[in-house]
Design a protein around this nucleic acid. Structure first.
Ligand code: FES
Ligand code: FES
Lengths: 145, 145
DNA sequence: ATAATAAAAGACAAAAACATCTTTAATTAA
DNA sequence: TTAATTAAAGATGTTTTTGTCTTTTATTAT
């Protein structure tokens, strides 16, 4: 399960990607409102993503957040790694200090498969993949009403 | 990803099950040592499991923890639920306030499958399943040396 | 009975996650 | 150049999770 910070990050970025298609650069107030996340916490998370170069921003009137049009599609795993690291995809299912094929815990064989599938999903899914679903009306980013 | 408390709970119970086969009832000091978990925290977790009737205990000299021989095999999901609830298996993959097939988030279709596989694993896997692997030498519960 | 042993219980403490508040810096429209 | 706007930054606060310490209660061997 992702941390709330990772969840907010992904929802924010999808929202930004959707808005960017219309040439708009939303601010953190708008983003937080639309994805139902705490305003200042969202701002902090976006700050982190900007520092890590996954996202761009401009200050001042008319400013906001946006993706570099040059940049490659952004896989979710990169966002997750930027916010909370890779532990979700490497940690032993019952908490042994190291996950290992050679010296497995009793659930390793089954758990590692599922964990790898999740990692695969997070690697293959990009912000754009998700943004397209929003644009096509096939999915939502909030539960407003 | 499970909470540490759930991880310690599962490792503890597997250790207890293994010991019980030899007619032994380990105490929390021994358990904590053998599964590499903090002693008092382990004691608290075992207390919770005893209160919830997933485990039995006797105080005093010769006391310790053990399973009711009458009881049915204990699926991991029951332990997880006792310690941290079901949220791991019900929560939206990107944190929407409700996960829903009818009104999905953009990752729902792929994520829900993996989450269900994990739930299925936690439902079908019992403490005894895991204990057998330890007894057969096919898996380990710690990384001591 | 007494001493030893072991879990239960309650209070407390530290760390991490989650969140807010206030001030500063950058940008732009007027 | 000034006022308005917006992100960045830093300090602080809250909640949850994780972990420890101390005292109490139950059990048993002697
Ligand atoms: S060793 Fe436990 S999941 Fe790999
Ligand atoms: S709605 Fe997001 S995972 Fe189901």
């Amino acid at each position: 399960m992702l941390s709330k910070a990772s969840e907010y990050a992904i929802r924010s970025l999808v929202y930004i990607a959707v808005k960017n298609r219309d040439g708009l650069r939303p601010g953190y107030r708008e983003i937080a409102r639309e994805i139902e996340a705490p305003e200042q916490f969202t701002a902090k998370i976006l700050q982190t993503l900007v520092r890590q170069k996954l996202l761009m921003s401009v200050r001042g009137r008319g400013g906001g957040f946006f993706f570099d049009p040059q940049s490659k599609p952004l896989p979710l795993i990169e966002i997750i790694n930027a916010i909370e690291g890779y532990k979700l995809f490497t940690r032993c299912g019952i908490g042994l200090s190291k996950c290992s094929d050679e010296n497995p815990c009793p659930i390793h064989n089954q758990y590692a498969i599922i964990r790898n599938q999740y990692q695969d999903l997070a690697t293959k899914t990009t912000i754009n993949t998700l943004a397209k679903k929003i644009i096509d009306g096939d999915a939502v980013l909030n539960r407003l009403i």
